[in-house]
C-alpha cells in the first residue's frame, strides 16, 4: 500500500498548551483511519494539520510525497478544493442551494461548466440512497440525508483523501452507522483514503485502523479489520 498522506514529527502549541507533541502518521491509499481521543487531546488539531488547515509549528506534512505544510494560502486552498474532501458534523451545506448544486459546487469552483458539474453531481445521488432528493434544499432533508449529500460533495472531485470531523455527531445511532458504512465503503470504492475524527468507538470500528491521541501524542495503536 503506497503512502498518500503522511505527517512526520508534527508539533503544534497554542500558547502554553501543547496540542501536538511530535506526531508521526501515515495514511495509505484506500486506507481508513479513525482518530480517537478525549476532548482537548489534539485529535482535531491533527486532522486540521494533515488537511492543510492549520500550519504545524514543527514537522512536515506530505501529500503524495510532496511537502504541503509550507505552501501559500492560495495553493493550499486549491489543494483542499481539488485533492481533499471534507465532511463535518453539520452546517456545511449552503441552505439556499438545492442538494445537487451543493454537490456540484466544488466542481464549478474547479472550472467545470455548470451543466456538466450538475450532471456529475447527480450521479452520486442514487448510490448514496438520495435518489429523488436532488432538488431538495438542505432544510428539507433529514440529518442523515444531509450528511450523505455532504459525502457526495466531498467525493465528487475524486479526492485523494476525505477528512471527516465528527461526521455523525448530530445523528442518531442507527443513522450514524448507516452514514459511516456508506462513507467508508464509497470512499474506498473511489480509491480515496479516509481520515476521520470521532469520539464514538462504534463509529471508529468501521475504519481499518484506529489511532488513539492523548496529550498531543499517539498512544495505543490498534489495527482492525472491517468485518
Amino acid at each position: 500500500m503506497s503512502i498518500v498522506l503522511a505527517g512526520y514529527g508534527l508539533t503544534k502549541k497554542y500558547g502554553s498548551t501543547t496540542a501536538l507533541a511530535g506526531v508521526d502518521i501515515e495514511v495509505g491509499e484506500r486506507d481508513s483511519l479513525a482518530i480517537m481521543g478525549p476532548s482537548g487531546s489534539g485529535k482535531s488539531t491533527l486532522l486540521h494539520t494533515l488537511a492543510g488547515i492549520i500550519r504545524p509549528d514543527g514537522g512536515q506534512v506530505l501529500l503524495g510525497g510532496e511537502r504541503i505544510d509550507r505552501l501559500g494560502e492560495n495553493r493550499l486552498s486549491a489543494l483542499r478544493r481539488s485533492r481533499f474532501g471534507f465532511v463535518f458534523q453539520s452546517g456545511q451545506l449552503l441552505p439556499e442551494l438545492p442538494a445537487e448544486e451543493n454537490v456540484a459546487l466544488p466542481l464549478m469552483l474547479e472550472g467545470v461548466p455548470r451543466k456538466q458539474a450538475v450532471e456529475r453531481a447527480r450521479r452520486w445521488f442514487a448510490p448514496l440512497g438520495l435518489d429523488g432528493l436532488e432538488r431538495r434544499r438542505p432544510g428539507q432533508l433529514s440529518g442523515g440525508q444531509a450528511q450523505r449529500v455532504a459525502i457526495a460533495r466531498a467525493l465528487v472531485v475524486a479526492p485523494d483523501v476525505v477528512f471527516a470531523d465528527e461526521p455523525t455527531g448530530a445523528l442518531d445511532q442507527a443513522t450514524s452507522h448507516e452514514v459511516i458504512r456508506l462513507l467508508t465503503s464509497v470512499t474506498r470504492e473511489q480509491g480515496a483514503a479516509l481520515v476521520m475524527v470521532t469520539h464514538d468507538a462504534d463509529m471508529a470500528a468501521h475504519c481499518d485502523r484506529i489511532l488513539q491521541v492523548s496529550d498531543g501524542r499517539i498512544g495505543t495503536y490498534d489495527q482492525f479489520t472491517v468485518a
Binding site: 486552498s77 456545511q92 449552503l94 466544488p106 469552483l109
Partner: peptide, 16 residues
C-alpha cells in the same frame, strides 16, 4: 460566518 467559514475551509476562494 459558519457557512462562509466551512466553505473557505473546503477550499472555496475568498474572492468567490
Amino acid at each position: 460566518r459558519r457557512v462562509y467559514g466551512l466553505l473557505r475551509l473546503s477550499g472555496t476562494p475568498l474572492k468567490v
